[in-house]
Design a binder for these strands. Structure first.
Length: 612
DNA sequence: ATAGGGTTAG
């Protein structure tokens, strides 16, 4: 048997390479006879196939010219396809192995890549078949395969199966345990994930990252940051991947100071700023309301991908800079970056916040016509919102009637909000009824419906709505505001008195109320009627969570520091008005991120111009 | 000659 020496030209293919170069190398190898050796063809096929998904078809052509493809070459094709956009093609090459008669037999590599292909496909049946096959062929004791199966079942959402596989392994190594930590966290059992993590005899940086991202992905951002601190205490080396999860936790919390600290940590420790990491930074600053900094990072990036552009576009739309969002979208296209379905959600929202109906419609149409993207439910939702906000309620209704899929509650919710804003009782009633058909327990729909009736002084119906709400036992998701002061995250719940400085907050709020009343403020009582429980209403000190947060901000932050609040629900009309007034009376900038967008309150105005 | 666990946008 001859020794296999890799051709130097093949080594060139390891890094990013243009198609032209691939062809040149191919020609060279053909001419010098290298491709007569099937083993070397295997090398070449692997190098081409793995260097870029775009070259997969070409790699296949090379393979087809091979007299007898080697198992290595076919495995390489399976491997390259299983992480491509078309994992199903992996099975074509598996069939080629099987149809080669006795010449070739699937080995542990083959099954491992097939398991990964199933993971990419997220197809239960296929996954189960491949699992059965690994057992039949006796590869279910292979640690790589076992770990792959755990990841597969996690992707399928079958936590039970993950446990079965995991429990069948007598002594799982730390790679396998890490996969299991991720599997549990993704499938919703973050408590067990933590238990496994704590029980690991050996934890490398990847295991730590799995735990941090596990918490970040289920929204337990504070615990994610806690684990990150533990990681540092233990002296584990932190890398860029961990920092992505850390930044993402800060983003969720709206913890700008901690996010800034993480950013400087990255720079201090010379952690390589990849496109992904920088994109996360753009998202961090955008979602913490510091759009200037977000764009500074964005423009500073040498390489940007569709995620990067989409983050920036989303940030601009969320922060109310609709026109800038649309300008940036043009630049994106000029730059040759192809927008995808996610990008269009941000673009359509950008149009929405500035009321550019026609332009929004044009972009919507361009999805299919120019980019071949079939608009999804979300896009129709944006379109309805676009027309509804602009007051074109009838157009919004006709879109809902004509959309090719069943409208979801959010679509009706857009119409409902707009109906109230434009005082269209009839449509408001229709929208809330439709909304409640879809989500019987939607507190917001009841509140808005009752507000609509209250607006038109229809008190019979107000009490009717109220009763049906009670009889159905609808409970409000408790309002919660989060605010960071001196790098510490404070949480405020509606009517909650547990904050250590509650007494002081209460006193400050009383002072604020007094000055608001002096300035002519009258409480908007309609939302109050339904936004709070009986018990709370009797309590003179009841505050929506953002009011408590604002009071705490005023007493804890210097005057020139903006008060930044993240809220889990939409801001109510009363809080919105109060925030505008406080921004003027106290000369404070208040930045509230609610469920959907930002409100930048300054000098008595809000960036949303009353549309939210 | 090849393989398993962690990461970004709605």
């Amino acid at each position: 048997m001859s020794r296999i020496v890799k051709h130097p030209a093949i080594a060139l293919l390891d890094s990013g390479i243009t198609f032209k170069e691939v062809r040149q190398i191919h020609a060279k190898l053909y001419v010098d006879g290298t491709l007569k050796d099937d083993h070397l063809v295997g090398h070449f096929v692997k190098a081409v196939a793995l260097s870029d998904h775009k070259y997969l078809d070409y790699a296949n052509q090379i393979l087809d010219r091979s007299e007898k493809p080697t198992l290595f070459a076919l495995n390489s094709m399976i491997r390259a396809h299983c992480k491509s956009p078309v994992p199903e093609k992996s099975f074509d090459f598996y069939r080629r192995i099987l149809s080669s008669g006795n010449d070739l037999k699937p080995d542990n590599y083959t099954v491992n890549f097939l398991v990964q292909a199933c993971t990419g496909l997220r197809m239960r049946e296929t996954g189960l078949q491949v699992h059965g096959m690994t057992i039949r062929r006796g590869f279910d004791n292979d640690p790589h395969v076992q770990t792959g199966l755990i990841s597969l079942y996690a992707e399928l959402g079958c936590l039970d199966s993950c446990h079965k596989v995991f429990n069948s392994i007598p002594c799982p190594d730390f790679v396998c345990r890490t996969a299991m930590v991720t599997a549990c966290a993704r499938c919703g059992d973050v408590v067990f994930a933590r238990k496994l993590f704590e029980g690991m005899p050996e934890r490398d940086p990847i295991a730590w990252n799995a735990m941090i991202s596990g918490y970040a992905q289920v929204g337990e951002s504070r615990e994610a940051l806690n684990v990150f601190h533990l990681m540092q205490l233990e002296g584990v080396k932190v890398n860029g991947v961990a920092m992505i999860s850390v930044l993402s936790a800060c983003t969720q919390l709206g913890a700008l100071d901690q996010g800034r600290w993480a950013h400087s940590y990255i720079e201090r420790n010379k952690i390589k700023i990849t496109v992904r990491l920088a994109t996360t930074l753009v998202d961090l600053y955008a979602k913490c309301g510091d759009m200037e900094k977000a764009m500074e990072v964005f423009w500073g990036m040498e390489e940007k991908n569709v995620y990067t552009w989409s983050s920036a576009l989303n940030g601009l739309a969320m922060n109310g800079f609709g026109e800038k969002c649309l300008e940036l979208f043009s630049l994106m296209k000029q730059d040759g970056v192809t927008p995808n379905a996610v990008t269009f959600v941000s673009v359509l929202r950008g149009c929405s916040v500035v009321g550019f109906v026609d332009e929004g419609q044009r972009h919507f149409d361009s999805m299919r016509n120019e980019f071949g993207i079939e608009p999804q439910l979300e896009h129709y939702g944006c379109l309805v919102d676009l027309y509804a906000r602009a007051g074109r309620l009838e157009d919004a209704v006709s879109i809902i009637q004509q959309m090719p899929m069943k409208p979801h509650a959010a679509v009706w919710s857009s119409l409902l909000h707009a109906s109230r804003m434009y005082k269209n009782l009839e449509l408001g009633v229709l929208a809330s009824k439709k909304m409640l058909e879809l989500e019987t327990a939607n507190h917001g729909a009841y509140v808005l419906l009752s507000n609509i009736y209250a607006d038109s002084n229809d008190w019979d119906n107000v009490s009717h709505v109220r009763q049906s709400m009670k009889s159905k036992g609808v409970r409000k998701q408790p309002g919660c505001s989060v605010m960071e002061v001196n790098g510490e995250v404070h949480e405020f719940f509606v009517g909650d008195k547990s904050h250590p400085k509650y007494t002081q907050i209460d006193a400050v709020w009383k002072d604020i109320s007094r000055r608001l009343r002096l300035a002519g403020y009258k409480a908007d009582t309609t939302p109050v009627m339904f936004d709070i429980d009986e018990e709370e209403k009797e309590d003179a000190l009841c505050l929506h969570s953002e009011k408590a947060a604002i009071a705490f901000g005023i007493m804890s932050l210097k005057e020139d520091v903006p008060i930044r609040i993240v809220k889990n629900l939409r801001v109510c009309g009363d809080c919105h008005q109060v925030s505008m007034m406080i921004s003027k009376i106290f000369n404070r900038e208040i930045i509230v991120r609610d469920r959907n967008r930002f409100h930048h309150f300054k000098d008595g105005h809000c960036s949303c111009n009353g549309f939210w």
